[in-house]
């Protein structure tokens, strides 16, 4: 199909000529580019440089983020450890105080119970002793 058939909308000769020249130019350029010596090595180096730069950047990012995460985790663990230690110390102190207090209370209670419950208990031989005293009195009276 010739170019002329497609020119119903563009009868202008100059336009037709320009399009022909354009076509010839593109053909000449593409043939020259198609047959040119290839520079694969440059392209490969360029790409490999980019690739390695990308890899390095990616590794750095991953390592950085991992380090950050580890550091954050370590910090948290450290804080948690300190908090647990503080809490356990506080708890120990509370327990000791409580124990001392409870012991004191127990002693007080026992003392109170002792004081409330305890009384003078007569000697177990007192009635016998009284009897003996009475007997001695009687004997002395009889003697007199």
């Amino acid at each position: 199909m010739s170019l002329r058939e497609g020119f119903e909308d563009a009868p202008d000769l100059m336009l037709e000529q320009a399009l022909k020249n354009f076509r010839a130019s593109v053909h000449a350029w593409s043939e020259a580019a198609y047959n040119r010596p290839r520079t694969a090595a440059n392209v490969v180096r360029h790409r490999s440089w980019r690739l390695s730069a990308g890899c390095a950047l990616g590794c750095a990012l991953v390592a950085g983020s991992l380090t950050g995460v580890m550091h954050e985790r370590h910090q948290r663990q450290e804080v948690a450890r300190v908090a647990v230690a503080a809490h356990s110390a506080e708890h120990g102190r509370k327990v000791a105080t409580g124990r001392t207090q409870a012991q004191a209370e127990d002693e007080d209670l026992l003392a109170t119970v002792d004081s409330d419950v305890s009384r003078e208990v007569p000697s177990a031989l007192e009635p016998l002793a009284q009897l003996m005293v009475e007997d001695e009195a009687k004997v002395s009276n009889v003697g007199n």
């Binding site: 100059m14 000529q17 320009a18 399009l19 020249n21 354009f22 130019s25």
Partner: peptide, 10 residues
């Protein structure tokens, strides 16, 4: 002239 035309078409 042809080059100028081609440039304009591009």
């Amino acid at each position: 002239l042809a080059q100028e035309q081609v440039k304009l078409v591009w």
